[in-house]
């Protein structure tokens, strides 16, 4: 199993955090992982992008050029993801912010209203965690079981109070994938 994922959204949506946490969980589940953020000279408001790979084997190129799955967190990211997604790949779309249909008819499309789900749980900032739950269910690359212990080792102690909310978001994201 090798799952290559491309993630994109606007700066501030937590794309980098999502990618990091995804590979951290993968590593804790015994997988080989690589996370490469696109680093540019932008500050706020630009498109944030990350390439992540989770695999049972040594990972060759850390660059994701034709991803198995792509995460589209906002409108601007849709064309980027449509361009690179491999034939028949999985497109996970944050339908709270992306109101149009994809042109990629070959793709397996999963629409998750991440912002609405996150707001119901208590904070729109955890929309990225909703998406992570969906990504886990859709790809199976990272199981995200034993989540609490992993999150506790990922976040510093003073952030531990937010872990239950994050776990709820991940669960909700998972449940939203039919």
């Amino acid at each position: 199993m090798t799952e290559k994922t491309f993630m994109a959204g606007f700066g501030g949506q937590g794309i980098i955090s999502l990618g990091q946490l995804w590979v951290y969980c993968g590593m804790k589940e015994g997988k080989e992982v690589t996370f490469f953020p696109f680093y540019g000279a932008e500050k706020r408001g630009g498109v944030a992008r990350a390439s992540v790979i989770v695999s049972d084997h040594e990972i060759a190129s850390p660059l994701v050029t034709s991803p198995d799955s792509a995460v589209v967190m906002n409108m601007d990211s849709l064309p980027l993801c449509e361009e690179v997604l491999k034939e028949g790949g999985t497109l996970l779309i944050n339908s709270s912010l992306v109101k149009v249909d994809t042109k990629r008819k070959d793709a397996k499309v999963i629409k998750i209203p991440c912002n609405e789900i996150a707001e119901e749980i208590g904070d729109v900032k955890i929309a990225n965690m909703v998406m992570m739950g969906a990504l886990s269910k859709a790809t199976g690359a990272v199981a995200l079981d034993k989540l609490e212990a992993i999150l506790k080792s990922f976040f510093p102690e003073n952030k531990h109070k937010f872990i239950p909310m994050n776990m709820k978001a991940i669960e909700a994201g998972r449940a939203a994938v039919k």
């Binding site: 690589t34 953020p37 850390p62």
Partner: peptide, 10 residues
């Protein structure tokens, strides 16, 4: 190179 420096791995 910048990729080795910027990417995260285990």
């Amino acid at each position: 190179d910048g990729l080795i420096g910027q990417m995260m791995e285990g």
